[in-house]
């Protein structure tokens, strides 16, 4: 796929549903420096979503889709759960895999894409819930890291199995009682970021989706490091407001409350030396480009 191909044939243009015309015209495929600031002005590649109103997963989705370096050359691999409900409305390739298998599918896909398109960069991004990533799919998740597979794994951590009514997950906090886990969680929240680091991920971030610029930076770094170096992992707190008894507008506060100092989701990252060098290179290039643009604008204003 390329941005060029996301065009409608002229002779059948007028019979296309308006939302397709709109996404072709206004989406940011192929645009350099795309990011969360495009949200609101252009399509962030989600038309609508079928999550609960105010679900923080929907916020995280928008930021992530707006931040992909090359959406037209990205394939998502997902798993069953609330995360998967959004994909029918997303204008990015997606493979829905059997629950827990996402990192195994992504492995085969990434390898096949490298063979099929040796001269092109094709990004593969796994996006799954905590149940799929940490419990049922942990074997596949970790094996792909051990093998140094070159794709990004994103876990939407809502600390339970939301889509099936609130069962306990490994990422649930100790002592938490949910509808389908009435005894309360007996052991600690699994420390997947640390496991990811030890298992060979080159860039690991734990965060919430309260700050769009942070999500953007993490996604950009994770995708580029996965392209060039090896596996990356991002764990984002996307509280299930339904299961923790919050109102639609309370998701943001919940995320902010949990990311303060000492909170469960205080921002943390683990970066290998190789990844740090690549990220610095990208940051420097970005700064230089911004400076050049500013100077050009100044010169134009003078002339």
């Amino acid at each position: 796929m390329s941005a060029e191909k996301i065009k409608i044939c002229e002779d059948l243009y007028d019979i296309m549903p308006p939302e397709y015309q709109d996404i072709v015209e206004n989406a940011t495929y192929g645009k350099e420096g795309r990011g969360w600031k495009d949200i609101g002005e252009s399509k962030e590649l989600i038309e609508q979503h079928s999550l609960c109103a105010g679900c923080p997963e929907s916020i995280a989705f928008r930021y992530i889709l707006a931040s992909l370096p090359a959406p037209e050359d990205t394939v998502f691999v997902g798993s069953t759960g609330c995360t998967s409900l959004v994909f029918p409305m997303v204008a990015v390739h997606n493979i829905h895999s059997l629950f827990g298998n996402q990192n195994a599918i992504a492995t085969g896909l990434k390898r096949a894409l490298m063979v099929r398109h040796p001269d092109k960069v094709k990004d593969v991004v796994v996006l799954a819930g905590d149940g799929a990533t940490v419990d049922i799919g942990l074997d596949m998740t970790m094996q792909s890291w051990f093998r140094q597979e070159k794709f990004t794994t994103i876990c939407f951590d809502n600390e339970l199995y939301a889509n099936t009514g609130g069962q306990e997950s490994g990422l649930m906090q100790k002592g938490f009682v949910s509808k389908m886990a009435p005894v309360g969680k007996l052991f600690d929240k699994v420390r997947l970021p640390e496991i990811a680091r030890e298992a060979g991920c080159h860039y690991v971030v734990m965060m919430t989706s309260s700050k769009p610029n942070r999500v953007e930076k993490a996604i950009r770094n994770a995708v580029h490091v996965a392209r060039e170096i090896g596996p990356t992992y991002i764990q984002i707190y996307t509280p299930c407001i339904l299961e923790i008894g919050k109102q639609s507008m309370e998701g943001l506060d919940e995320m902010k409350d949990s990311e303060g100092i000492g909170g469960r989701f205080t921002y943390k990252e683990y970066v290998t030396d190789a990844a740090a060098a690549l990220i610095k290179e990208m940051d420097d290039a970005e700064k230089a480009a911004k400076k050049a643009a500013r100077e050009k604008a100044k010169a134009a204003a003078k002339a």
């Binding site: 191909k5 996301i6 065009k7 409608i8 044939c9 002229e10 059948l12």
Partner: peptide, 8 residues
């Protein structure tokens, strides 16, 4: 008409 003829 399907995707193979709608998209350029």
């Amino acid at each position: 008409p399907g995707p193979l003829v709608l998209w350029h």
